[in-house]
């Protein structure tokens, strides 16, 4: 029987057009009708197909600028693809430091809004609320607008929401490389608990140890091209061979 898929991408690609001078007003466009800006085409993700199975943890490796972050945004449905098709089976969450939050809202409101966006009901959020606040260590600031928070407090809240509310498909983009040491320890501890069980996780990291530890399958990207997708050991070999 074919395994259930979380994401199926067929022949997807993404190109960015970078203009030297951004013409983003009607006035600017009119005045520069005969003087178009110089464009540069950047093929961030070259045509590729891949399937991510439900419940698996897939590693994503490649050097800086190899298209990892763009691919992750395409697979999460945040960026539209130029060509090809993506089927996403469930809610997705792209997590680097935290989840998206409004600085005009209080911690309480952000918890409810973010959890709701991630697919939780208000009742489910009620049940998780104290845990989220406790983990973020923000018990005394629940009804304070987060624009008055320090960046560390915002990061803790975002991470706590992501960890507890989560989404069916999580994209973790270098989560072990941000925040202070205590924060990183906390991230690792969460990861080592049973948190990822049952979730589909795409893990982007330069730390090969972490990829090796958690991912059975990995994808290796090079200059926007999917060079290899399969067992992690072979993917790492490709990566090492190209970097030495």
């Amino acid at each position: 029987m074919e395994k259930e898929f979380a994401i199926r991408a067929s022949n997807i690609s993404k190109t960015f057009t970078i203009t030297e001078d951004s013409h983003n007003t009607v006035k600017h466009r009119l005045f520069n009708l005969f003087n178009p800006p110089r464009r540069k085409i950047l093929e961030a993700v070259k045509p590729m197909s891949l399937t991510i199975e439900k419940g698996e943890c897939l590693g994503l490796i490649g050097r800086n600028g190899s298209g990892k972050s763009t691919l992750v945004r395409l697979l999460a449905g945040v960026y539209p693809v130029d060509k090809g098709e993506i089927e996403i089976n469930g809610s997705t969450l792209l997590l680097n430091l935290g989840v998206g939050m409004s600085h005009e809202l209080t911690a309480r409101e952000n918890i409810y809004v973010s959890s709701s966006v991630l697919g939780l009901t208000i009742k489910q959020t009620d049940a998780l609320f104290d845990t989220i606040v406790g983990f973020a260590e923000l018990q005394d600031f629940v009804d304070t607008k987060i624009k008055f928070f320090s960046s560390g407090m915002v990061a803790r809240l975002g991470f706590s929401i992501a960890v507890h509310a989560g989404a069916g498909i999580m994209f973790l983009d270098e989560i072990f490389a941000v925040g202070d040491m205590k924060f990183q320890e906390k991230a690792v501890r969460v990861f080592e608990s049973s948190w990822i069980e049952g979730k589909t996780v795409v893990l982007v990291s330069h730390s090969l140890d972490i990829i090796q530890k958690y991912c059975r399958r990995s994808a290796y990207l090079k200059k926007g091209e999917l060079v290899f997708l399969g067992d992690t050991a072979t993917a790492l070999e490709h990566y090492m061979a190209d970097n030495h």
Binding site: A76, V78, L94, L95, G100, M101, V113
Partner: peptide, 11 residues
């Protein structure tokens, strides 16, 4: 203004 709602998920 509502970018925070969609830039990290497929809402």
């Amino acid at each position: 203004t509502k970018k925070y709602l969609y830039q990290y998920s497929n809402m």
